[in-house]
Design a protein around this nucleic acid. Structure first.
Length: 422
RNA sequence: CGGAGCGUAGUAUAAUGGUAGUAUAUAUGCUUUGGGAGCAUAAGGCCCGAGUUCGAUUCUCGGCGCUCCGACCA
């Protein structure tokens, strides 16, 4: 992809008033556009990142038997009333001009909708267990949107729901989901901590959150620095300096970002919405449910919060918008010609959509600074200097030093993901 | 929802009760090319409403919007 053709541009100035690092960098780099507080557009560059994050999530959800589907964003009142979740502050309500009262709420969670659908398809223990999920825009009327993409009024979320005949079956699935979640966050370059928490408007039971340590996080957790056991302060009786209840290690108080959560919802929704099955003995029981959420846009913002430096973003390779950033410096015919050849060669190896080629006629400083801001993992520079040496310059975004390599060495380094430092 | 602050060009900012300035970005031309280059020319702006005033971008009130703190929350 040619950078001159990219729809969004980087900006030199930071957006006014934004303190959140993820908002500064994502807006400045042209990944997202802020339409309103807590409401963002994903520009082509940011959408590529979001797609990669979603692909990782899909792979891991599919791996635990999740079936992807898609549900409506407009949820009719009749779905939410049985669970007493119609009139909640979290909702954005929708009504037509001819309506006196709203008949719909913009979906902020989909337990009711999916449970109602399941009640038409699930009748026997033979229909269980199953799990279905979607990746969809959620709407929540935040009292205060803040911290860039970390807390939005409209945001992307993966929500998976599992349905079981027995508590023990749910518990074993819960464990599988937990492992899948760890994989998702690890693949996104994040260390997450499995944290005991409360259930909010979703369940009366304890739930588990996946927390990533960050000073901008709005959660506070008590974390064992030995074994990683963690409790959210909202339900914890621990305090800093206590001994870990699991391993007696030291407990520390940490700020963190909740990137995912998993809930045992029991039979709350199945009983309210009439989702029952008949067991082997012919007896009817409510289906036992679990819910598993990941905020996709929040996850993307968290990656930026964790992986950045004073120059810009350092995308983990798994979610980077491009694998390689080719930058030509100087616009002499020789440089342009050589860079074009390198571009063709890179495209053959990695595909057009993994290579961003900055062929703009701009100063070296501008192009290099933009490259740092965009945070693509590998940078290849072609210039008079590299031509003279008959090589290209290769640099990882995460490392300070670059080196001159020939084409063969370059592909070997990128393919094997080797560090350049000696 | 409570508190504080802020709304000036695409972006970031300055000053001002009487012609609104700078940087950057944009367009054109020439020069320049290893860390946000130079010269010239052009185009581009006071959130909305009411009030005070001869005159309001400036003062007052209201609204809307944005940021931060708090409450609330996933």
């Amino acid at each position: 992809m040619l950078q001159s053709k990219l729809f969004s541009k980087t900006t030199k100035n930071s957006p006014e008033g934004e303190e959140a690092r993820n908002a500064q960098l994502l807006i400045k780099g042209g990944f997202v556009f802020k339409n309103s507080a807590g409401i963002y557009s994903f520009l082509p560059l940011g959408w590529k990142v979001a797609q990669k994050v979603m692909d990782i999530i899909r792979e891991e959800m599919n791996a635990i038997g999740g079936q992807e589907m898609f549900m409506p964003a407009l949820i009719e009142k009749k779905y939410m009333e049985p669970t007493s979740r119609w009139n909640l502050d979290v909702g954005f309500f929708a009504k037509g001009l001819r309506d006196k009262e709203p008949h719909f709420v913009l979906g902020w969670s989909h337990e009711e909708v999916l449970t109602a659908i399941a009640s038409k398809h699930v009748h026997s223990y033979k229909d269980l267990p199953f799990a279905a999920y979607q990746i969809q825009t959620k709407f929540r009327n935040e009292a205060r949107a803040k911290s860039g993409l970390l807390r939005g009024r409209e945001f992307m979320m993966k929500d998976l729901y599992s349905f079981h005949a027995t508590e023990s079956d749910l518990e074993s699935y819960y464990e599988r989901a937990k492992e899948a979640y760890f994989k998702v966050f690890e693949r996104c370059g994040l260390k997450s901590f499995y944290t005991l928490a409360g259930g909010g408007v979703f369940t009366d039971k304890f739930t588990h959150e996946f927390q990533v340590l960050s000073d901008v996080g709005e959660d506070t957790i008590f974390l064992c620095e030995e074994c990683g056991y963690a409790e959210n302060e909202e339900i914890s009786k621990l305090k800093g300096g206590d001994a870990c209840p699991k391993c007696s290690g030291a407990i520390a108080m940490k700020k963190s970002i909740e990137v995912g959560n998993i809930f045992n919802q029991g039979t709350k929704y199945s009983e309210s919405l009439g989702l029952y099955f008949t067991d082997e003995k012919g007896e009817k029981h409510p289906v036992i449910m679990g819910a598993y959420g990941i905020g996709v846009s929040r996850l993307m913002a968290t990656i930026v919060e964790v992986h950045n430096d004073e120059k810009g973003i350092l995308w983990p390779e798994s979610v980077a918008p491009f694998k390689v950033h080719l930058v030509s410096l100087g616009d002499s015919g020789e440089v342009t010609e050589a860079a074009s050849k390198v571009y063709e060669s890179l495209v053959r190896h990695f595909g057009e959509f993994e290579v961003l080629y900055d062929e703009r006629k701009a100063s070296a400083g501008e192009k290099l600074n933009d490259s740092d801001l965009l945070g693509i993992p590998w940078r290849v520079v072609v210039s008079e200097k590299t031509l003279a040496a008959k090589k290209v310059e290769l640099k990882r975004r995460s490392e300070g030093e670059s080196q001159l390599v020939n084409e063969e060495e370059f592909f070997r380094a990128v393919a094997n993901n080797v560090n350049l430092k000696k």
